[in-house]
Design a protein around this nucleic acid. Sequence first.
DNA 1: TGCCAGGCCCTCTTTAGGGCCTT
Length: 216
Amino acid sequence: MPPIAVIDFETTGLSPAAGHRATEIAIVLLEGSRVVGRFQSLMNAGRRIAPFIEEYTGITNEMVQAAPPAADVMTEAARFVQGAPLVAHNASFDQQFWQSELRRVSGRKRPDPVWTSPPSFACTMLLSRRLYPQAGSYRLGALASFHALPDAGRAHRALADAEVAASLLCRIRGDLQERYQVDEAPHDLLVQLQRCQRRSMPKAIAAYFEGLRDHA
DNA sequence: TGCCAGGCCCTCTTTAGGGCCTT
């Protein structure tokens, strides 16, 4: 099964369009349910971190000032991912920062397909909304408690959150297998399922695998 | 922690508004 990269950013705020920048990135590389690689680094993007975000993440201005430049870290992160499809919790957030930070790198160098091709993101929050209507809350921490996922360390640090999101993804894949007999849940199937209504999932799964067979 | 953003989803909806989730 091809690898999937589960990613999490810590940032100075909610929107790259508002000038917010990444302060930390972590990536957990999964093959099936097996972790085959981890990447984590603080990064210095030259932005001050507001006190309430320092408290929220535990990442201080001093820590970021001592970190390598954001461009170097993102270059290393892109090489680590090697074009693998990406997964995140509330992926629209991490997708914005992934693309924004990489654009800053590729804008200074010869364009590289790894950086210029927007990867497709699967979202563990959207999938959880469809699969676990009884969960109540779809915050990462709440879903970790709901499923009794292994503790990964301090919440709101990138590697801990990426580890929890990876565990959640494995749980989602396991439940898809149990409920819908999906032996493996490829990334593009996850992307399709996160867009369809719960009652339409069996039909979407069947259509997906019929499509694969027709193209074989 | 939330006023700032943006996407998704629900409903007292669809010619809209508000809550959730991410930092």
